[in-house]
Structures are given as structure tokens and as C-alpha cells.
Simulated assay, not measured.
Amino acid sequence: MMRGLLYAIGFLTRIPVPVSVFEDTRARRLSVLAYPLVGLLLGVILAGLGLLLEDHDDLLASALILVVWVGLTGGLHLDGLADSADAWIGGLGERTRTLDIMKDPRCGPSAVVAVVLLLLTKLAALQAMPGPLRMPALLLAPLLGRTALTALLASTPYARAAGLASDLDGSGRAPWLVMAAALLASLLAGVDGLLASVAAATVFGVWRQAGMRRLGGYTGDTAGAMAEMVELAVLVVMALRLG
């Protein structure tokens, strides 16, 4: 399981891990179970940074937190959001066309607009929360975003014959136990955790259904887009409550 966690850290973040772990097929399959732990790790780092910056200007602190957030993930899920935005609009409701556009490395205007709007809204949500009240949001958003990834892989077929996420093992009972533990941890935050969990579950349900209707499943890009949208929903809901 430890190698699965290391694989998940190396795959979902830019935190260095031993290169040999990526040669372990079993670690790759088990890494799905560790996604929520990676989210928790990101949350702890971001909350720690937020604590260090809580006495500084809210806008500057929020911007620095967001820069570190993107840097830690290498923009992995932002890339998925960009590709999904281009494909969903340019695909014109057609499955094959949508999948083909996702494979195109070029970014269209829809991709740029989607990424800019998401980052601006994240920044606004972080800035709207007073420094000390920002910590729960910084912990919960990455945790629930990666928990949603585990839920997607456990409940949804892969839409392509092969791809980066095609052999990740999200089947069986274990992913559901992991998700239950992550949600329980969120609920320990009280009302904030409950609102965050509801927001995450809503985005998960709506986006999963959209993927099933258009593609018959998920791709790595739609999974990344979902993680970003879950994070955004959690931040916005908590900003509206706490700001």
C-alpha cells in the first residue's frame, strides 16, 4: 500500500518520489485507494501555508496559496479541465468527435476561458474568507477533490479502449471504504464539512452523469476536470458561508 501511496503522490503531484515506483504495476493499480490521502497531504501543505500568511494582505496571501496549489499539482487537473471544455463545446454532442478533440494537444478559446474563470473564482473565494477561517477550506477542497476521483474510478467505466487511466483499479469494495473514511473525516469539520461534502457530491453526480451521456464513461481529462470543479465548489460554498 505504501508504494501505491508513493505512486499516487508522484502521479497527482510534483512532489518527488522514487522513480522505481512507476515501474510497479501493482502500485499503479492500488494508487487509486491513496488519492484521498494525497488530497489530505496537499490540504495540510496549503493550510500550513495559509497559517503562515494569515496576518498578511488577504488578496496577496490568496494569490500565493493558489500559485503554490497549482505548482504542487503541476496543473495536471487544469489540463483536464481545458481539454474537457474544448471537447464538450467543439464535440457538438458526438462521442467520437468529443474524444478526438480531447486528444488534441492544442488549446482552443474555450479551454483558456474555462481555466481563467476557474482560477479567478478560486482566488476570489480564497480572498473572501478571513485568514483563520481559510484553513478548513484549504484542507477540505483537495481532500474531497481527490476523493471524487476515487469515486469516479470506482463507479464509472473508462470511455476509451486504452489510455493513461485505463488500467487504474477502482473496482471492489476497498475504494468505497476509502471514500467513506474521507467523507467521515470531512464531516468532523461540522457544518462546514457537511456543506463541503454536499457540494462535492453534487458536482460529482452532475459531471459523472454528463460523462456517461456523452462518452459512456470517463477519461483522464474528464476526471481531472471533475477534481478541479469539486475543489471550486467546496471553496465557493465555504466562502459564501464564512466570508
Rank of each mutant, 00 (worst) to 15 (best):
E23Y: 14
R241T: 10
E228A: 09
L119E: 09
P142N: 11
V38D: 00
G74N: 13
G193W: 07
L138V: 06
A111D: 02
V203I: 12
V237M: 03
P157T: 11
V206F: 11
D79K: 12
G217E: 09
A161I: 15
H56S: 08
Y158V: 14
L64I: 11
I45R: 00
V236E: 04
L12G: 05
V230G: 09
G190E: 01
P109M: 13
L49K: 00
L78E: 04
L140S: 06
G190F: 02
V32F: 00
L78C: 12
L6E: 06
A87N: 04
R213T: 10
R134C: 06
T222K: 03
A233K: 06
L177K: 15
P105Q: 05
Y7N: 04
S110A: 13
E231D: 15
L81I: 04
A87W: 08
Q209T: 14
L144D: 01
G131Y: 05
P132W: 09
L76S: 03
G71D: 09
R26C: 07
D100N: 14
G243S: 11
M179W: 07
V198P: 09
S20V: 12
F22V: 11
Y7D: 04
D100R: 07
V191E: 04
I9E: 02
T202C: 15
L46K: 00
V234S: 02
E228K: 02
G163H: 01
A181Q: 08
T98H: 00
T98I: 10
I15L: 07
R95V: 03
I45T: 00
L59V: 15
L53E: 12
H77T: 05
V19F: 14
F22T: 02
L153I: 11
G90Q: 01
L30E: 13
P142M: 10
M229I: 15
R173I: 10
L177F: 11
V32P: 00
R208F: 12
A8H: 02
R14I: 04
V67N: 07
R3I: 07
L42P: 00
F204P: 05
A34R: 00
Q127A: 11
L232Y: 14
D104Y: 07
S110L: 04
A225V: 05
G205Y: 05
I65M: 08
I9Q: 06
V237E: 01
S84G: 11
G50N: 01
A148D: 02
M226A: 12
A196P: 13
L188E: 09
T73H: 03
L168D: 05
A124G: 12
G243I: 11
P175Y: 09
W88H: 04
T219L: 15
Y218K: 13
V44L: 15
R160C: 08
A137P: 06
P136D: 09
L118H: 13
A141L: 13
Y35K: 01
L235Q: 12
L53S: 14
A63W: 12
G74S: 12
D83H: 14
M238Y: 06
L37A: 08
S197M: 15
A159Y: 03
P105R: 09
G90E: 00
V19H: 10
G39R: 00
G75R: 02
T219P: 13
G193A: 08
V237G: 01
A227F: 10
G220F: 13
G90I: 07
L59K: 09
L144H: 08
M212Y: 15
S155P: 07
L99K: 15
D86I: 04
L37H: 01
F11H: 13
G224V: 13
V115I: 05
T219Y: 07
M102S: 02
A199D: 14
